[in-house]
């Protein structure tokens, strides 16, 4: 008979890895399953200067250390896989991976984090790397002297726009609202840049091109009128959402589709906990994710102890 894990953790960001460290150090048989790259969003952070006890570091280094700690305590980590089935309702939980492999556990900690929003419009996937980008720092130089569209209105969108304007000949920010969510400082920087134009209350509907992006279709949300804009590139910075798609019909969520947990990180299902950016909370920091993961692991450990007694 296959082994049953004490804890399966879905997600390998700071919350999932912290839960893995605590659970495996408590001698629980622990498995972390992660759909993408180990580390989650923090791995992209160039500088982390406010993680207590650690002088300035970067996300990659911090995550590599967490991963090593988890491994050293005996935690198994499997990443870059596809979770194809989740059964949380029975006493023994079951997770199916890649449509074939099944893993069973007495408790599950959900730590899937957040994921960048995409436009989900025709042309976006087809022109990825050929005009559609999600990183100005990475790809900005490919648009030197070219016209680009930036989608979004938060801090990232405006900050990245100013950065992109160093390369682009003309930059148009398309934002769905009539005002920006970004801090005034970022808005002022963008508004004071002569290369940057604004199309407000509008959304992209389609991206067209041949070998690379040539134009976009834009809908004015106030009037419903559609227009086309010639462009060489589309940069997408429309924020993150809780990555709860695969458990949305299994645990209780709030109106913002965040997992509802109690102070012990317990969900509405016995033996199922959640931690990190996927849960209902106000502040999303590495430190809060680590704290959530710690509490979830200790709660799972306590649950298992009570089950055994």
């Amino acid at each position: 008979m296959e082994d049953i894990y004490d804890v399966i953790i879905l997600g390998a960001g700071p919350a999932g890895l912290s839960a893995g460290i605590y659970a495996s150090r408590a001698k629980l048989k622990t498995l972390i399953l992660n759909e993408g790259t180990v580390g989650g969003q923090v791995i992209l952070t160039h500088e982390i200067a406010n993680y207590p006890g650690v002088e300035t570091t970067n996300g990659f280094q911090l995550i590599n250390t967490m991963k090593k700690q988890a491994n050293d305590f005996g935690c198994t980590i499997k990443a870059n896989l596809n979770i194809t089935g989740i059964n949380l309702s029975d006493k023994i939980k079951e997770i199916e991976v890649n449509g074939t492999d099944k893993y069973r556990a007495k408790t599950v900690i959900l730590a899937p984090g957040g994921k960048p929003r995409t436009l989900n419009i025709p042309g976006e996937e087809d022109f990825k790397g050929r005009g559609v980008s999600y990183c100005a720092t990475c790809d900005g130089e490919f648009f030197t002297g070219k016209e680009v569209v930036v989608v979004g209105g938060g801090n990232s969108a405006l900050e990245e726009s100013v950065s992109l304007a160093k390369y682009a000949s003309k930059l148009t920010i398309v934002h769905q609202f009539d005002h920006f969510q970004a801090l005034p400082h970022y808005v002022d920087m963008a508004k004071n840049n002569p290369k940057i134009n604004f199309i407000m209350s509008s959304e992209l509907r389609e991206i067209y091109g041949e070998a690379s992006v040539k134009k976009v279709k834009i809908e004015n949300l106030s009037t419903g009128q559609e227009s086309e804009l010639k462009t060489d590139g589309v940069f997408v910075f429309i924020g993150y959402s809780a990555n709860v798609g695969k458990v949305a019909d299994k645990v209780s969520l709030n109106s913002r589709t965040e997992i509802i947990v109690d102070k012990n990180m317990k969900t509405n299902i016995d033996g199922v906990y959640a931690a990190g950016d996927c849960i209902e909370k106000r502040y999303r920091q590495v430190t809060t994710a680590v704290a959530d993961g710690t509490i979830a692991a200790l709660s799972a450990s306590n649950y298992l102890m009570n089950q055994n007694n």
Partner: peptide, 12 residues
């Protein structure tokens, strides 16, 4: 580079 589109490929 050490960017958001690159790191997942290195990891894979």
């Amino acid at each position: 580079r050490m960017g958001p589109m690159c790191l997942p490929v290195y990891d894979i």
